[in-house]
Simulated assay, not measured.
Amino acid sequence: MTDLSDRTIFITGSGGVLGSTYVRRMLEAGARVIATDLPGHRAEALQDTHGDHENFGFYELDVGIEDQVTKVFQRVLEDGWKPNVVLNNAAITGEMLMGAGKPFPDFADTSVEDFERTMRTNLTGAFMVARQMDRDIVGKWPCTLVNVASMYALNGAHHPIYDGMPFKNFSAYGVSKAGIHGLTVWLAGYWAGRQATVNTIAPGAVFNGHSEEFQRRVGELIMANRMAQPDEIADVMLFLSSAQAGYMTGQLVNVDGGFSAW
């Protein structure tokens, strides 16, 4: 098992299907974990599950609000944490927008408000977290940033698989995730002389209660012929967060069952 006992890991969007898996697996690997998320049932579930763990801390954070990003890092440092790994994992998906009570729009009906809200969280939020790293962490001790993209970061969506489904592929999501890797390669060079590495992980289609029909449609596009389980993405995230990935920087790692290779 990957040993993360020398790691203190700051994770945004910790309450989702992947974020909560990262938290669990990293605690199991010996890391100290600083989980952040919006207030609500996901945050409560994290604290109910891990609140008694000596290596776990939770802070409320909306990565789209600049003042919150600045203040959460100040609080983390004041509380004695010394993060040396940061995971830019927070993201808005189309399903989340629909879950807020909105019908899923066709592209022609996509509002500028929803597009910009998604970009604000997924890309501008990642920038603000990285900028705060630059101010508070980078150069003070060796550290790493892992930006979370998607199988749709550098590959177009296969729109027919969404026909008749209650959700569609949301344009702003793919656009923001492509920008995430642009942020990675820019920062990798900028931080190269300051003992800081930056990489992108691009998860594939992760199972989260999807219908059998949707699983079949997606599976036909994937060499592995199935969706991923969250722990399969976490396996690679643990490696990227560990000392064993110390010679990697500026890279995009696809964990997509072969989707991007076809």
Rank of each mutant, 00 (worst) to 15 (best):
V85C: 09
N147P: 09
G19V: 07
T121M: 05
I9Q: 01
N88C: 10
P105N: 05
N122W: 01
T184G: 04
L27S: 01
K140M: 14
A149C: 05
Q68T: 09
D37P: 06
V23T: 00
G156M: 12
T197A: 10
D67W: 12
A188L: 11
Q229K: 15
R120Q: 13
M223D: 15
T36C: 04
R42F: 12
L154Q: 11
G16T: 05
G174I: 05
V112Y: 12
W81Q: 04
L154K: 11
R75K: 14
V198G: 00
V129C: 05
V255G: 01
L61K: 00
S5A: 11
L46S: 01
W262P: 13
F214H: 12
L38R: 04
R117C: 05
V63R: 01
I137P: 01
T12Q: 03
A245T: 01
Y162H: 09
V253G: 04
A196Y: 01
A245P: 02
D79Q: 10
S14Y: 01
D67H: 13
M227S: 08
D106Y: 14
H158C: 15
E44C: 09
A224Q: 15
A192N: 07
E213L: 13
A35K: 01
A178T: 11
A188F: 08
R120I: 10
L252S: 03
Y162M: 09
G19C: 08
R216K: 15
V76P: 00
R194I: 08
I222K: 06
L187S: 01
A100K: 11
K102V: 02
S242W: 05
T118L: 05
T8F: 03
A153C: 13
D256C: 06
E66M: 10
S242F: 06
M119A: 08
R216T: 14
F58A: 02
V146K: 00
G94M: 02
A228V: 11
E113Q: 09
E213Y: 12
W141C: 06
D114V: 07
D6I: 13
I161G: 04
R42Y: 10
T8S: 10
L238Y: 04
P230C: 06
E220F: 12
P230N: 05
V138L: 03
M128K: 05
M98F: 13
S5K: 12
D114F: 03
T8R: 03
D48P: 04
K102N: 07
A188C: 12
R135Y: 09
D6A: 14
S150W: 00
F107M: 12
N208R: 10
M133S: 07
A224K: 15
T144S: 13
T144I: 08
A202W: 03
A130P: 02
A188E: 07
L38D: 02
A178L: 11
D79S: 11
E78Q: 14
K82W: 13
V112T: 14
I11E: 00
G19F: 02
A149P: 00
R42D: 09
G250H: 00
N169V: 11
H158I: 15
G257V: 02
G156A: 14
G64R: 02
D231W: 13
W141L: 09
